[in-house]
């Protein structure tokens, strides 16, 4: 085995073989020459670019995210500034675009427009943070259960099943009740604790399918360790379905946060949030429906945008599904 002991010798044999292969190479270049390197991700992006769902949801989400990050770009009115005497339940002034009175005033004389703009932050932060936490934790649980199988899978899957038995809303309610002072972070914790199971299930199924793939066997045959197999081979191939589920679930978390706040268990007053505003507006629904409808519309649009985005991403990642 000369090429085993000395890499130099190995390379010279390789070089000798090059000559023999040259003829074949020529023929292959000609027939396959038009292709440019293109990853599956790039393919998905090409697909996304042509999808109106993606653009509609994308535009909406960009607006909401900019709103959450820089609310002052949209309004310079302080959402907490109350003028009961001047503005109590004042109706909207539809022609005053981007003004304080565009969407009228609420029961405390605060600008509904300003509150809705500022409320985006809490909702989106909760949604994004819960999703990240859930994807990381649920993904990890699912990956371990799926990859190792056996008793690890048995244990983790049963725990997942137990948590599945607790409705997200009920679990969140019970847990958050324990906190007297609730911020965006406590709500995130509450929702993440009871929201990770779906991702874990999706991840487990996808990992079980992928770990039997020949390329995983090939990596094992090369002597690859568990870490390399999991993170280099399996993870990139299961990310697709997980991203889709996570995106769609994100909308759900935002609406759950609003529901909790509506029930008075979520975010609390000094925090401006859509849920808090919807909750406060319920008593005045007959006199001033706009106070409820405006934040409710924004909430629905955000949730819808995330769900549409998830659909568009799924179509792009797996065109066969359509």
């Amino acid at each position: 085995m000369p090429e085993k002991t000395s890499p130099e010798a190995g390379r010279s044999t390789v070089a000798a073989a090059v000559v023999g292969a040259a003829e074949l190479t020529e023929a292959t270049i000609k027939t396959q020459g038009q292709n440019k390197p293109r990853s599956l991700g790039q393919d998905a992006w090409r697909e996304l670019r042509g999808s109106w769902l993606f653009w509609a949801s994308g535009v909406l989400l960009v607006i909401f995210i900019v709103m959450a990050a820089f609310p002052t770009l949209f309004t310079d009115v302080d959402p907490r500034q109350a003028d009961l005497r001047g503005h109590y339940l004042a109706p909207p002034n539809w022609s005053h675009f981007f003004q304080g009175d565009w969407f009228g005033y609420n029961g405390q004389g605060q600008s509904v427009y300003a509150r809705t703009v500022h409320g985006a932050r809490a909702s989106i932060i909760v949604g994004v943070c819960v999703t990240i936490a859930v994807t990381v934790f649920g993904g990890l649980v699912g990956m371990l259960a799926g990859y190792f199988g056996g008793w690890v899978d048995g244990l983790l899957s049963r725990i997942t099943d137990i948590f599945f038995g607790i409705p997200l809303l009920l679990g969140g309610l019970t847990l958050l009740q324990a906190f007297t002072h609730r911020t965006v972070w406590t709500v995130t914790l509450g929702l993440a604790t009871f929201g990770w199971m779906q991702i874990a299930r999706v991840m487990r199924g996808a990992v079980i399918t992928q770990k039997q793939a020949d390329f995983v066997t090939a990596a094992r045959a090369l002597g690859a360790g568990t870490g390399r197999i999991l993170f280099r081979h399996i993870l990139p191939n299961v990310l697709g379905p997980v991203i889709v589920v996570a995106t769609i679930a994100l909308g759900g978390y935002i609406s759950t946060e609003a529901t909790l706040s509506y029930l008075g268990i979520g975010l609390q007053d000094p925090v401006v949030s859509w849920g808090v505003d919807i909750s406060a507006a319920q008593s005045q629904l007959r006199d001033a429906p706009h106070v409820l409808l405006v934040p409710a519309t924004f909430l629905s649009l955000t949730v819808l945008a995330f769900i549409l985005l998830g659909d568009a991403v799924r179509d792009a990642l797996d065109p066969k599904l359509r």
Binding site: S39, A219, L222, R232
Partner: peptide, 26 residues
């Protein structure tokens, strides 16, 4: 080892360079 199915034995998310180079990383 050389596998039967050339469609499933290569990781679709890796470039050819990464696939053939992986033995050297391991």
């Amino acid at each position: 080892m050389v596998f039967q199915d050339p469609y499933t034995s290569l990781n679709p998310r890796m470039t050819v360079g990464d696939i053939i180079g992986e033995p050297f990383e391991i």
